[in-house]
Design a protein around this nucleic acid. Structure first.
Lengths: 229, 229
DNA sequence: GTCTGTGAAAGTGTTCACAGCG
DNA sequence: CGCTGTGAACACTTTCACAGAC
């Protein structure tokens, strides 16, 4: 459960390899999905690469090229049927089925993740939560019972958990990830501000809240420097 | 306060323009910063592009090229003094000063953001919080008083707020952003699953929890397809 | 006429490999 | 020697522009 120097480090920006589709394309794909869902909610049934691109800040060619990686989903002279394209993208992303997710770490952020309403509709069900704090174990958050860390491997197997979310303090994140991986989880979203070393075959995406703010502060600071100088 | 078709849409992946430094470079920069801080915590005072790269999954050349965008911070034959490079990167990212941040939306996620311990040490102080729910207004979360949305512009000016975090439901995110921008905020981190349209000169980074999971599920689904097929 | 799908061109980002400094 | 900083080679992405489908 320590972490001297395990395999495959991998950073935030990209997940591990995945065939030959650029990470940036997959990123945009899920942006297209979200926007298509908004379009449908607005009562729009058909769209075009230029409309979709315009709403997201991409070129029409970009949208078409991205989709071309996976097939030909449009109708020349017409555009894309929204519901059709939604289904295609969900299939590509794998969210045409439900993924079960386990959460490790029920602090402030963990509780927010358990209560987050946006997962279910996109095909993710948070099915188990774990914490090392005996005071939390046994209690229920959002209808989910908090279990002790020691039960991860049993529960992950029993509940057929696919993915993990790590929301523990930085110092414990690698250990938490190691346990999840040993239990058979295939991918992890890591909210701790560390780069996890995971074995090949386990995907990771990192979300670091302070880093997100840093990206913004850089942009603002650059602008201020440009103006001020 | 509606949002027919305002300026500059911009997606998650990139922030607005910022001189000529690629977004990916800035992303990695803050990853380098984080790792350097870990190195210092481990008692390591000097590092090299290859050590830094290895721990993050990048090549040594990548690390050196990234830094070269901003200057020459290393010592040939020696490497990089960790504390020196940390200072340089903080200066570049703009976090050599404190940025004040306002939060709009004190739901589950908003509360987690107010309680998040990782902001302060990186140069961000959440100094104000707003919510439209009268039941929440007036209460205190993590020592911060929740104020009504109507007071945003007054408070942002008075407290000299630099950045905003939007953690309201998708349908209200554009309006919340509009108010923040009108009040003078220069950058926004948006946790709502929509693409905000912001005027030029205001930076945005989007964090969409469901999308992060989708990136992982794509990678896992790809691997399963490859194996299974 | 509209809009897709796609080769070819242009533009960016990454890796290589080495000169030069400590 | 070791390691940085960097031009030059390479790889990858994006944009262009058009043939073909509706």
């Amino acid at each position: 459960m320590s972490s001297s120097k395990p395999p495959t480090p991998r950073s935030e920006s990209g997940r591990s390899e995945s065939g030959s589709v650029p990470a940036a394309v997959v990123n945009r794909l899920s942006l297209y999905l979200r926007e298509l869902q908004h379009l449908v909610a607005e009562g729009i049934q058909t769209t075009s690469s230029s409309q979709l691109g315009e709403r997201l800040g991409f070129s029409d060619a970009q949208v078409r090229k991205d989709l071309a990686h996976f097939g030909a989903f449009g109708h020349p002279g017409v555009g894309y049927r929204c519901d059709e394209l939604i289904n295609e993208i969900r299939r590509i992303l794998g969210t045409d089925r439900v993924w079960t997710v386990a959460l490790v770490g029920v602090g402030n952020l963990g509780r927010a993740l358990l209560g987050y309403k946006g997962f279910e509709s996109q095909g993710f069900r948070v099915a188990a939560a774990f914490d090392s704090d005996p005071a939390k174990v046994g209690s229920h958050v959002e209808g989910i019972e908090i279990r002790p860390i020691e039960e991860i491997s049993q529960v992950v197997a029993q509940a057929a958990i696919d993915l993990g979310m790590v929301a523990v303090p930085a110092a414990f994140a690698q250990a938490a990830a190691d346990v999840l991986v040993a239990a058979g989880v295939r991918g992890i979203v890591n909210f701790a501000p560390v780069s996890l070393a995971l074995p090949e075959g386990v995907s990771q995406v990192g979300v670091d809240l302070a880093r997100e703010l840093e990206q913004v502060s850089f942009a603002v600071a650059s602008r201020l420097r440009a103006e001020g100088a």
